[in-house]
Design a protein around this nucleic acid. Structure first.
Length: 609
DNA sequence: TGAGGCTGTT
């Protein structure tokens, strides 16, 4: 990892500090108080020229007075359109003995300009110069560790913060929770939260986000309720994190409840909260509600339009997504990189190849947006889905950046859906050159070989997968019933009602077969088991379990909403169509890529996925 | 008090 030497430097400083007591040097810079007129002038600057004039005047009259310089530096770090961090750093270098506030201001600036390494370097300078780091310093350092996913350094900082008496500081705790969450240690984040005597609303916001992002849906929702009962007043950020939790979990009922709360407490004046509502409704499968929130918004920014475009795109309404872009331009709102991701996504899921190319070019040429890896991914998907596999391969080879395994994986899925074994084998070679630990790759190719009766290849891939120790992410589907999110894993024997559930699913499959459903056993990875056994492996797929749970535990006629962590399998997709027809239920299934609305035996994706 | 923590859109 490129960051190691710098992080080592921090570790070194930390060890030094742990063994020697920190010295606190008094600030010996000019102490003459600045005139209040200069201080009040700084925030009014409208250009770099004005700022430089004030700077020159300060040097002349106040000899680099730290109060004025800190205010100037703070202005630079908060106004990127007027001044740069380089300019701030030049001022900073002129100060012979910067105090802790100056260091902290600079570090915060680098963090804002998304340069965590520079922020860390500055803070380690604090440690080396013998200044006593304070709660501000720890906040910046922990934020940088979160950004760099540096768990070990984060832990050391946590220990040091405790030692220096700021471990339970109200500003440090949320950054600690955030750092542990970013480093995938949710338990540690939870321990930090539990140690706070009286958590403030920001700590609650941090821990709710932590649980929601790490598949702990019910814990996130319980904490949200606890926050309400504690008498603390939720803020607009609480609404954002609670809504994004619902979106991640597909918890529509709770989302609707929060929407009511938002309206009652005036949070619907915030553009960001409305955007989070659009996203929540879209991700929970209710496009109509997303549209209605968008229509009622008093003001719409780029993010709001983008959220709506992405909503239409993921629900398979490609042409609506594109017409939204036209309306957005009419409303004189500038599209950004996310807007175009939504548009490219819409094109790829609707088969609009030529339009996709056009938007890709207008994004770069007309709007000057540099395509990211995700835009390239959309283009590969666009070509691959349409069966233009050679063209997609050429597109990857001609990229100005080094392709990642994800880009090749996108093409691999297309090879699979178009049944092109030879191409898939070539593609998997390219993937294995970069990463051979991803179990999903072996499964895709193996399923494709199995469908073509190439059992030797299937066995070979299976052996390779075991030898390499490649792991497959287990399929997991969830459904919200009575405000509780129930999770099911493939072949689940964990859920409390699993015996009843398995029994019900057995009966369900019998009924589906009578209606014409034929289990697609060619999809099962194992070549050496009998067809009957294969059918059983398929039967207990997580999405089938979740749908069955929904059928058993919701009133007849209500819509069943299921969220899956991977792509839906062909057999489950087929079964869901039959279920929607036989039981007269709408099923809305969100998978890792898009939505499938099943109704009267048909799916909204038109089997184009 | 010269500087804060948690934040939505693929």
């Amino acid at each position: 990892m490129a960051t190691t030497p710098i992080l080592q430097c921090v570790s070194h400083s930390l060890t030094k500090l742990n063994t020697e007591a920190p010295r606190h040097e008094p600030n010996t810079a000019a102490l003459e108080p600045p005139s209040s007129s200069i201080l009040s002038l700084i925030p009014k600057c409208t250009s770099l020229r004005e700022l430089k004039q004030i700077q020159a005047y300060t040097i002349k009259t106040h000899q680099n007075n730290p109060t004025v310089l800190t205010k100037l530096i703070n202005f630079c770090t908060s106004n990127p359109t007027i001044a740069s961090m380089d300019h701030a750093h030049r001022m900073f270098d002129k100060i012979p003995q910067p105090d802790i506030v100056l260091f902290n201001t600079m570090a915060r600036g680098y963090a804002r300009f998304d340069d965590p390494l520079r922020a860390i370097l500055l803070c380690s300078q604090v440690l080396c110069s013998g200044l006593l780091p304070d709660d501000y310093t720890f906040s910046s350092l922990l934020k940088a560790c979160a950004r760099l996913k540096a768990l070990e350094e984060g832990k050391q900082l946590h220990c040091l913060a405790v030692k220096l008496g700021v471990g339970d500081n109200m500003y440090v705790c949320p950054t600690l929770i955030n750092m542990y969450t970013a480093c995938n240690d949710v338990d540690a984040a939870r321990r930090v939260f539990d140690k706070i005597g009286e958590p403030c609303v920001v700590a609650y916001n941090a821990i709710i986000t932590s649980c929601a992002r790490n598949s702990r849906p019910n814990e996130a929702l319980a904490l949200f309720r606890e926050l309400q009962e504690s008498g603390l007043k939720p803020t607009d950020v609480t609404m954002l994190v609670a809504l994004s939790s619902c979106a991640l979990l597909g918890a529509l009922d709770l989302g609707r409840w929060i929407h009511e709360y938002v309206k009652k407490n005036g949070f619907d004046q915030y553009v960001k909260v409305n955007t989070a509502l659009i996203d929540m409704y879209a991700k929970c499968g209710s496009l109509d509600d997303a549209v209605s929130v968008f229509k009622d918004m008093p003001r719409r920014d780029t993010q709001a339009w983008s959220a709506m475009i992405v909503a239409y795109a993921t629900h398979g309404h490609g042409s609506q997504a594109i017409s939204m872009l036209r309306e957005m331009k009419k409303a004189k709102v500038q599209p950004d990189e996310i807007t175009f991701l939504g548009i490219l996504y819409a094109c790829s899921h609707t088969g609009l190849v030529e339009e996709g190319y056009e938007y890709f070019h207008s994004m770069t040429h007309e709007y000057g947006i540099v395509p990211s890896i995700k835009h390239y991914g959309c283009m590969i998907d666009l070509l691959g889905r349409a069966g233009r596999l050679e063209e997609a391969c050429k597109f990857i080879d001609e990229l100005p950046i080094k392709p990642t395994p994800i880009l090749w994986r996108t093409l691999l899925s297309s090879c699979s859906s178009h049944g092109n074994v030879e191409m898939a084998k070539l593609v998997i070679q390219r993937i294995f050159e970069l990463d051979d630990s991803h179990g999903g790759d072996y499964v895709i190719l193996s399923n494709l070989c199995a469908r073509n009766g190439r059992w030797d290849d299937v066995n070979h891939l299976r052996k390779m997968m075991v030898d390499k120790g490649a792991l497959k992410v287990p399929g997991c589907s969830s459904i919200e019933v009575n405000n509780v999110v129930h999770e099911f894993f493939s072949g689940d024997g964990v859920h409390s009602t699993s015996t009843i559930l398995h029994h019900a699913l057995d009966e369900l499959v019998k009924e589906l077969k009578l209606a014409g459903y034929v289990p697609d056993t060619s999809l099962v990875f194992y070549a050496d088991i009998e067809d009957e056994e294969k059918e059983i492996v398929l039967r207990y797929h997580s999405e089938k379990l979740a749908i069955t749970y929904g059928l058993l535990n919701t009133p007849p006629g209500t819509t069943i909403r299921v969220v899956k962590n991977l792509r839906v399998c062909v057999d489950c997709h087929n079964a869901a169509k039959f279920i929607s027809l036989i039981f007269g239920r709408q099923i809305i299934l969100r998978d890792v890529q898009r939505f499938h609305h099943f109704k009267d035996g048909k799916c909204s994706c038109g089997d184009y996925w």
